[in-house]
Design a protein around this nucleic acid. Sequence first.
DNA 1: AGGGAGATTTTCT
DNA 2: GAAAATCTCCCTA
Length: 184
Amino acid sequence: MSETENLDDLLQHGAVKAGQGLLGWRLYVKDGNQLIGGMITETEAYTEDDEASHSFKCKTERNQVMFDSCGRLYVYFTYGMHFCVNIVTGAKGRGEAVLLRAIEPDKGLDTIRARRNFRSDKELANGPAKITQALAITDKDNGIKLNQDKFILLPPEKAVKFCKLPRVGIKQAIEKLWRFKVCD
DNA sequence: AGGGAGATTTTCT
DNA sequence: GAAAATCTCCCTA
């Protein structure tokens, strides 16, 4: 089974499972012939039946990528100045995705430090909008498929443990423990 | 080191 | 017209 088939298998089982399964995977962006990125350490799941989701009972111009086939990026603009990036999950026609909340960069560190204004290593990509700064992801990348050209997602080198936590920055459906974070 | 406010514009009601 | 899946700076202890 190829890497791409592994990934599809993980993503097709829905955002909640995919959010947990994506922890430990490594996301890289090709920049010339160098790779920039690192390991995914925190995610959140959003589904069509979820009041807090952009896709809740309504397909719009902004969220249409969430309804497309899985393995694509859904990039949106928020708070007047930030981009956030999701990985689309589920079957085509289902509006769901997994928000990437934190990454531990391990390739292209010089480039990332420069983009992040030489903050401490902990602060390089430990937030949804910080990831898009570190990897230079913008609305131009909305809808692009993983493992086709610019974006690469590789399986974990080893299994990771994680905790389930409430999601951040939303006021709807706060009872759902759909934030997943790598921990000891 | 921890909390609070400001930045700034798209998207949807 | 208001809220938004946020970040950073600046203030106080």
